[in-house]
Design a protein around this nucleic acid. Structure first.
Length: 218
DNA sequence: GTTGAGCGTT
């Protein structure tokens, strides 16, 4: 049978995705590739990462062309120790594979009893927030090839987040005011008051200013 | 430097 396998084949909707859980936060796709590739042809490996920190979330997705290979990987890599942590490999349930998800609820064939859904993680909540308003800024000029290369090549996703500061304004202000002691007397900070003479003798015992000594405080 | 149930992107 000369049947060339092509992406999107009717036999396989897209590809069988495997969900790898319990993986270390430092584990990258490159680390999982050689492990999963040994059991079959890995189409692609994707590891969801946080957009803020850029760190992995602790799980990865591995795509196989055939279910046989995927099953083999599950049986061989499930329970295997990777990066010092025991990973759990199982078939992905949700995602592009299902393609029939309705707001977290699977409207497609659900092998699981209805009425019961696993609760979501609190970490996913913030992701939904920025995800609705940040994806639009992404440039579509990128090609898929470039994405793959970047993904496999970029082992240092966290490096970019390392140069991040708490706040750009904070640094500027801090540098500006760093020249003079920030902890000054409260009266100096309110020297803007016209009724008081700045940079002068602060001795209240001098009525020469024509000001009462008690006018310093309400 | 940290954490640990879960289901994903161009």
């Amino acid at each position: 049978m000369s049947h060339f396998r092509r992406s999107g084949a009717p036999e396989n909707r897209d590809s069988f995705s495997l969900l790898v859980l319990n993986v270390s936060f430092r584990t990258t796709a490159d680390d999982l590739f050689p492990l999963f590739d040994r059991y079959g042809d890995v189409v692609d490996i994707f590891i969801p990462r946080d957009r803020r920190t850029g760190d992995s979330r602790g799980f990865a997705f591995v795509r196989y062309n055939y279910e046989d290979e995927a099953q083999k990987a599950v049986d061989g890599l499930d329970g295997r120790k990777v990066d010092g942590r025991v990973i759990m490999v199982q078939f992905a349930k949700y995602g592009p594979n299902a393609q029939k998800i309705h707001r977290g609820r699977i409207t497609e064939e659900t092998p699981k009893p209805r009425g019961h859904f696993r609760s979501r993680s609190p970490r996913r909540r913030y992701q939904d927030d920025y995800r609705d308003r940040d994806y639009r800024r992404q440039s579509r000029s990128r090609s898929r090839e470039r994405y793959e290369q970047d993904r496999y090549r970029g082992n240092d996703y966290r490096r970019l987040s390392g140069t991040r500061s708490i706040s750009p304004d904070y640094d500027r202000k801090h540098t500006r005011y760093s020249r003079s002691p920030a902890h000054r007397s409260p009266s100096h900070g309110k020297s803007h008051s016209p009724r008081r003479a700045p940079s002068r003798e602060v001795t209240p015992s001098r009525p020469r200013d024509g000001r009462s000594p008690r006018s310093g405080h309400p």
